[in-house]
Lab assay of single mutants.
Amino acid sequence: NKFNKELQWATWEILNLPNLNEEQVKAFIDSLRDDPSQSANLLAEAKKLNDAQA
């Protein structure tokens, strides 16, 4: 389904953001699992944090 694909994509993207530490990655992945419908928003937040920590 749509959420499953978005969840998989967001998870992959977050795992590959180079500037997030392990705790941050875990927190984003946990949030994705808690509410897959928020995957686009969570991915945007993760990318923003990744850029800020570059």
Rank of each mutant, 00 (worst) to 15 (best):
N1R: 00
N1E: 08
N1S: 02
N1A: 01
K2M: 10
K2E: 15
K2W: 14
K2T: 15
K2P: 15
K2Q: 15
K2F: 10
K2D: 15
K2N: 15
K2A: 15
F3V: 14
F3S: 03
F3Y: 11
F3E: 08
F3R: 00
F3H: 09
F3G: 10
N4P: 03
N4F: 07
N4E: 15
N4L: 05
N4R: 02
K5G: 11
K5A: 13
K5F: 05
K5R: 03
K5Q: 15
K5T: 14
K5I: 07
K5E: 15
K5P: 15
E6H: 05
E6M: 03
E6N: 04
E6Y: 05
E6P: 05
E6R: 01
L7T: 07
L7G: 04
L7A: 11
L7E: 12
L7P: 04
L7V: 12
Q8A: 09
Q8W: 08
Q8M: 06
Q8E: 15
Q8I: 08
Q8P: 02
Q8N: 03
Q8S: 04
W9Y: 14
W9S: 08
W9H: 14
W9G: 05
W9L: 11
A10T: 07
A10K: 03
A10H: 06
A10M: 06
A10V: 14
A10N: 03
T11N: 05
T11K: 08
T11D: 03
T11L: 15
T11Y: 09
T11P: 02
T11H: 04
T11A: 06
W12V: 09
E13G: 06
E13M: 08
E13I: 07
E13P: 02
E13K: 05
I14V: 08
I14M: 05
I14A: 01
I14G: 01
L15M: 13
L15K: 11
L15T: 11
L15R: 14
L15V: 09
L15W: 07
L15Q: 15
N16P: 01
N16Q: 14
N16W: 03
N16L: 04
N16T: 09
N16S: 10
N16F: 05
N16H: 14
L17H: 04
L17Q: 04
L17G: 00
P18Y: 05
P18L: 07
P18R: 02
P18S: 08
P18G: 10
P18K: 09
P18Q: 14
P18V: 07
P18A: 13
P18F: 06
N19K: 04
N19A: 07
N19Q: 05
N19W: 04
N19V: 02
N19E: 04
N19M: 10
L20M: 02
L20D: 00
L20A: 00
L20Q: 00
L20R: 00
N21H: 08
N21T: 12
N21I: 11
N21Y: 10
E22I: 06
E22K: 06
E22Q: 12
E22F: 05
E23S: 13
E23G: 12
E23I: 11
E23Y: 13
Q24R: 02
Q24I: 03
Q24A: 03
Q24V: 03
V25R: 15
V25S: 12
V25W: 03
V25L: 07
V25Y: 06
V25F: 03
K26F: 10
K26V: 09
K26W: 07
K26Q: 09
A27M: 12
A27I: 13
A27V: 11
A27R: 12
A27Y: 09
A27S: 14
A27L: 11
F28N: 00
F28L: 06
F28Y: 05
F28M: 05
F28S: 01
F28R: 00
I29V: 06
I29Q: 04
I29R: 04
I29D: 01
I29W: 03
I29K: 04
I29S: 03
D30E: 14
D30R: 09
D30A: 13
D30Q: 14
D30T: 14
D30H: 13
D30F: 07
D30L: 14
S31Y: 13
S31H: 07
S31E: 09
S31R: 13
S31N: 13
S31Q: 13
S31T: 12
L32H: 01
L32K: 00
L32F: 04
L32T: 01
L32P: 00
R33K: 14
R33I: 14
R33Q: 11
R33T: 14
R33G: 08
R33S: 09
D34E: 13
D34R: 14
D34H: 11
D34M: 15
D34Y: 14
D35I: 05
D35T: 07
D35K: 09
D35P: 00
D35M: 07
D35S: 11
P36G: 04
P36T: 04
S37K: 07
S37R: 05
S37V: 06
S37G: 08
S37Q: 09
S37Y: 09
S37D: 04
S37L: 07
Q38V: 06
Q38F: 06
Q38E: 13
Q38T: 09
Q38P: 01
Q38N: 13
S39I: 15
S39A: 04
S39P: 04
S39F: 15
S39T: 09
S39M: 15
S39E: 03
S39V: 15
A40V: 09
A40R: 13
A40Q: 13
A40S: 12
A40W: 06
A40K: 12
A40T: 08
A40L: 13
N41Q: 11
N41S: 08
N41F: 14
N41P: 06
N41H: 09
N41G: 03
L42E: 01
L42K: 06
L42I: 12
L42P: 00
L42R: 06
L42F: 07
L43H: 03
L43F: 06
L43M: 04
L43Q: 03
L43G: 01
A44D: 13
A44E: 11
A44Y: 08
E45N: 08
E45I: 12
E45W: 07
E45Q: 12
A46H: 00
A46V: 02
A46K: 00
A46D: 00
A46P: 00
A46Q: 00
A46M: 01
A46N: 00
K47D: 02
K47W: 09
K47R: 11
K47Q: 04
K47S: 07
K47Y: 13
K47M: 15
K47L: 10
K47P: 00
K48S: 11
K48Y: 11
K48T: 03
K48P: 00
K48H: 08
K48A: 10
L49D: 02
L49F: 06
L49Q: 08
L49M: 09
L49G: 01
L49S: 03
L49T: 06
L49K: 06
L49P: 00
L49A: 07
N50E: 02
N50W: 01
N50Q: 01
N50F: 01
N50D: 10
N50G: 02
N50H: 02
N50P: 00
D51W: 09
D51E: 12
D51A: 12
D51V: 07
D51L: 09
D51N: 10
D51Y: 13
A52P: 02
A52I: 13
A52Q: 11
A52L: 13
A52G: 10
A52H: 10
Q53V: 11
Q53Y: 09
Q53P: 04
A54R: 01
A54S: 13
A54E: 12
